[in-house]
Design a protein around this nucleic acid. Structure first.
Lengths: 216, 216
DNA sequence: CTCTTTAGTCACTAGCTGGTGACAGCTATG
DNA sequence: CATAGCTGTCACCAGCTAGTGACTAAAGAG
């Protein structure tokens, strides 16, 4: 009888195929991150979510780190240069910095606020380094470099632009991460759309004042 | 023989007193946070660090949350209004915003960079809410309110000041948190003193441009 | 047909976690 | 002196974690 149970179970899920299993596992990482956050992510949880035995994580990936790495490389968790420029990199080059930088920041905010998964990884990245956050770091650094190139910003010629946009991006990251768990910061409600609109306007103001014609 | 060992052990550490034990435990939380970070903080680790049995955490505090709360209330983890104003709140009131805001930000950065424990709690706060971070939240919100009052900033009259300083504080928080685990952000090294000096200068520039006479 | 490889399940280990019950020794109070 | 209360140690529980070895079933190769 015991064998019968085992047999039926075995045949029901057998031979899904290695590739399919790998995909199941990779997908499960994303599902779990989005639903439970990074604190509950482990081999047991991932295997259970994928409906697969955890031993396959070791057999196919050698362990969780490599699975995380492949998950990180598997999708578009970070906004691309195209998304940040609104698919108008050419037009952006012609614009003055007073317009192009705020526009990129606006797209950046929109991208982060619309991607729960990216928000989660961003939070993870700020407190821990692992194979997943390392991959994301690389992607992010590359995107920011490409972006500066796309809008023709030279770090030699525009040191202030780098500094200011670094500050603005850091601020956005913090507020996005923070809004995951609590809404209050400096007595403003960082979960409300209105506040984000105000912040976007403030960013625009900063750029206009700092990159305006009198500064060229 | 077994009894003899127990007895000697028992007598060696006996009757330290409840108050002393409570202090040991509270202190151990701080030591552990500074040394290992918040991820490894639990009843077992705290008790071990304090050299005390973990059951006493439950007996004297009812559990870890209350111990954390009392730890949070036990010291000056967050910079005070005095520290942020450089003990010169009066002088700050006379200054234009172009000078006072950067000065406060400078003191804020200095305070955070000099307090590993506060940095750790700040990181914790950004990803999780618990009794400790709740206490710190309250303190922080109160300090920021008091600060605005101390330098006579009215949220009705100076909405831009609130927005901009919120952004700047958020940016500083992010970079400080991030520098715990990795030094690279936007291709700059956020562990180096030079970079922080540049960032301080950038903050000053932003304030001068945004709060300058032409904006009054 | 036989032998090997692949895919998958299950059962187990060791070590950690938070939490509790039973006990021992000291001390103050009646 | 006896008893009750406080302070502390120890041993244990259940539940979780990462990781491994032994097994079965099927498919493919000779």
């Amino acid at each position: 009888m015991k064998e019968a149970i085992i047999n039926s179970k075995t045949q029901a899920t057998r031979s899904r195929g290695q590739i399919a299993t790998r995909e199941l596992l990779i997908k499960a990482v994303g599902t779990l991150l989005a639903r439970q956050g990074f604190t509950s992510l482990g081999v047991n949880a991932v295997a259970k979510e994928a409906g697969v035995d955890k031993v396959l994580i070791y057999r196919y990936f050698g362990g969780l780190p490599e699975l995380l790495r492949q998950f990180g490389s598997s999708g578009e968790f970070w906004p691309s240069v195209d998304e940040l420029t609104g698919w108008k990199a050419d037009a952006l080059q012609q614009m003055p910095l007073t317009q192009s930088v705020p526009m990129v920041m606006r797209n950046y905010i929109k991208a982060l606020r619309n991607r729960p998964l990216t928000r989660e990884i961003l939070a993870w990245e700020s407190v821990e380094r692992n194979e997943l956050t390392k991959v994301l770091e690389e992607v992010r650094e590359k995107v920011s470099m490409d972006l500066f190139q796309a809008v023709r910003i030279d770090s030699e010629k525009h040191p202030a632009v780098i500094s200011i946009s670094t500050l603005l991006a850091a601020a956005v990251n913090y507020l996005v991460i923070r809004s995951r768990t609590i809404n209050q910061f400096n007595s403003i409600d960082i979960a409300s759309d209105d506040v984000w609109e105000t912040l976007e306007k403030t960013i625009t103001t900063i750029c206009e004042k700092c990159f305006g014609p009198e500064n060229q």
